[in-house]
Structures are given as C-alpha cells and as structure tokens.
C-alpha cells in the first residue's frame, strides 16, 4: 500500500531566527530520499516540523498512509506517531537508565502500536540480534553502534509506514556509519518502508538513496532525481563538498 510524504512551501523559525525558507519536497512510496546538508542548514528542524514538534508558520505537510491522505499541520506529535510515522532522533536519544528491552517496549507506548507488540519485538530482535543478547542491559552502557541499532529498533516497534532518520552517522566511527546505513536499507527492504533520511555524510548516504535534496541555509539548493545526478553535480561539489 502506498505511503508517501509531500511537503510544500514550508517556512519555520525559532522566534526571529528563520531556519526553513520555502522548502518543498516529496518522498514517494517505497523510496529512500536523502536530505543532504551540513550543520545548521535546517535538516533537523524540517524533521521536527514533520513530527509536529516545531510548528511551521506556512506551508503544508501531507502524509499518505496506505492510500489515505492526512494533513499533518496542527496535529500533535502523538497523533502523527499514531498514523505510522516514526522518527529516529539525531544523536540516538535513548533512555539510558532503562534496559534495552524497556527502550524497545517504550517505542510502542501508543495504543495503536501495542496491539502487535510481541510480534514487533520479535521483528526487532530478528533484525538486530545483538539487541536480543543485550536485552537486560542499560541502554546507556551499550557501544555507539549498538545504541544506534537500538534507536532504529525502537522506531521499528511502532510498525511505521514512513521512517524519518535524523543524522544516523553522528558520533559513530566510519565503519559503524557504513553498517548503520546498511541496516537502514535492510529495514526499509524488509518492511517496505518509505524513508526520509537527513545526513551530512554525503558518500555514505547516497549509497542507499533513490533520490535526494541538498539543503543550504534553509532552502532546497538542488534536487537530484537519482543517486547519479547527486553524485555528478557541480553544485554539490561547490556548496556541499567545498571543492
């Protein structure tokens, strides 16, 4: 069933500081779309707009979940989560003083997610066997890579249709970044997710991307209709890679 995300003409600001300026983008059903940009260009703010954590001053965000269109503007974060949109926050943001298993169970805090709790937990442990080994351990005592796994697993517990991943590479060693990106791709394939991923690590991100956008100072500076187009683009080299 089709699940897509359409953002049109979004403006957002923190007080007088304008962070997002007329951003429009679309994530088609079953696509992995990357949002590329360095620090402070509005990637995380856009993610928070989608989740209803930051209220945009203008524009529309429409999510299509299994063929039904939902206007996300004005909805609370809880309602958006209930629709089947999950965010893996930047920097993982686990519950460090709770165990791995508790972290996963709390991913399914919403009533809608609790119905399939046992099955989703199994799915999580099947996808990330390491989490099953460490289920009784405090989340704060996991290694960086394991923590990222747990953050992804926690989002899986919602049985989402649309997965938002905010900078999965933050604070990870290069080898772990590569594995995390692969894990996201595998999750997407297995559960037919529609994925929007914000990332700074250009080379890693485009490995799994179908399409991508480059965001500079809160504006979409370039839209790449394929991974190749992103790879061979002068604008990206100039704005983004600084070449």
């Amino acid at each position: 069933m089709a699940s897509s995300l359409t953002i049109a003409g979004i403006h957002a600001a923190y007080g007088a500081v304008r962070v997002i300026d007329d951003v429009s983008l679309k994530v088609g059903s079953g696509e992995t779309v990357v949002l590329l940009g360095t620090n402070g260009n509005g990637k995380s703010t856009l993610m928070k707009c989608i989740m209803g954590m930051v209220r945009p001053s203008e524009g529309t965000i429409v999510a299509e979940i299994e063929g039904i269109h939902h206007d996300l503007i004005g909805r609370t974060t809880q309602e958006i989560v209930d629709l089947g949109i999950a965010l893996v926050p930047e920097g993982r943001r686990l519950f460090p003083k709770l165990t791995v298993e508790e972290n996963l169970l709390l991913g399914a805090f919403r009533r809608a997610a609790r119905a399939e709790l046992a099955r989703n937990l199994e799915v999580c442990f099947a996808t990330f066997p390491r989490l099953a080994e460490r289920r009784a351990q405090f989340a704060g005592s996991l290694s960086g890579g394991e923590q990222q796994m747990l953050a992804l697993g926690r989002a899986l517990m919602l049985a989402p249709k649309i997965l938002l991943v905010d900078e999965p590479s933050v604070g990870l060693a290069p080898i772990l970044v590569s594995r995390t990106i692969e894990a996201i791709n595998e999750m997407k394939q297995r559960y037919q997710l529609t994925v929007l991923m914000a990332e700074q690590n250009f080379t890693q991100a485009i490995r799994i991307a179908d399409r991508g956008y480059v965001i500079v100072h809160g504006k979409i500076a370039f839209e790449g209709r394929s991974a190749d187009e992103l790879n061979n683009n002068d604008l990206i080299k100039k704005f983004y890679l600084g070449l």
Partner: peptide, 22 residues
C-alpha cells in the same frame, strides 16, 4: 505505563515525544 512514560521523560524528553509518549 504512567511510570514508564515518566521515566522516558526523565531520560530524554525529545525521544519520548518521538515515541509517541503524551
């Protein structure tokens, strides 16, 4: 559930929000 919900807020309020905790 209330207690676990409160614990998520204590540990990380943003992550709690993202998990759909009211």
């Amino acid at each position: 559930r209330l207690g676990y919900g409160l614990a998520t807020i204590r540990d990380d309020e943003l992550a709690a929000e993202a998990s759909g905790v009211p």
